[in-house]
Simulated assay, not measured.
Amino acid sequence: MKDILLFYLPGCPHCKLALRLQEELLAEHPEWRDIPFQKVDESREPALADAYDYYYVPTYYVDGRKVHEGHAERADVEKVFRLAVED
């Protein structure tokens, strides 16, 4: 299983949607709840955010590799979780 890292901003409507979609997917796929997942509010952790190469939030990384940046649809968030569990 790979780690997921999400950079977000609390007031961002795209981030709120991504987080809501994530909750829906975790309810449908309880096996995904064991995936190591870290949410980083970029406004509270600017040094960590600056260490990564991205321009828009939400931005997902799987094992340090950027896999999605910007507005996320359900399929995008699902892809992130599927990448985290594939061998």
Score class of each variant (00 low, 15 high):
M1S: 11
D3N: 11
I4D: 00
I4Y: 00
I4M: 01
L5K: 05
L6C: 10
L6W: 00
L6H: 00
F7E: 01
F7K: 01
Y8A: 04
Y8H: 13
L9Q: 13
P10F: 10
P10E: 15
P10G: 11
G11T: 12
G11L: 09
G11P: 03
G11E: 11
C12L: 08
C12R: 06
C12I: 06
C12N: 08
P13R: 04
C15I: 03
K16L: 12
L17G: 06
L17C: 10
L17K: 15
A18T: 02
A18I: 01
L19K: 13
L19M: 13
L19W: 04
L21G: 05
L21F: 07
L21W: 04
L21D: 06
Q22R: 10
E23M: 08
E23Q: 13
E23S: 14
E24L: 11
E24C: 07
L25Q: 03
L25D: 03
A27Q: 15
A27M: 15
A27V: 14
E28F: 09
H29N: 14
H29V: 05
E31Q: 09
E31A: 09
R33C: 12
I35G: 06
I35M: 08
I35C: 08
F37D: 00
Q38P: 05
Q38V: 14
K39M: 13
K39R: 11
K39N: 10
K39I: 08
V40M: 04
V40S: 03
D41Q: 09
D41R: 08
D41W: 07
D41F: 09
E42S: 14
E42W: 11
E42C: 14
S43M: 15
S43N: 13
A47V: 14
L48Q: 04
L48P: 00
L48F: 04
L48W: 02
A49E: 06
D50S: 15
D50H: 15
D50A: 15
A51G: 13
D53Y: 13
D53I: 11
D53P: 07
Y54N: 03
Y55G: 13
Y55N: 12
Y55L: 13
V57W: 00
P58T: 08
P58Q: 06
P58G: 07
Y60T: 04
Y61P: 00
Y61D: 02
V62L: 00
K66I: 07
K66M: 12
K66Q: 12
V67M: 04
H68T: 01
H68Y: 01
G70P: 02
G70L: 04
G70A: 05
H71R: 13
H71G: 08
H71N: 12
H71P: 07
H71D: 09
H71T: 10
A72T: 05
A72F: 02
A72G: 06
A72I: 02
R74I: 14
R74P: 13
R74Y: 15
V77Q: 01
V77P: 02
K79T: 10
V80F: 02
V80S: 01
L83T: 00
A84D: 04
A84T: 04
A84W: 01
E86S: 10
E86R: 10
D87R: 10
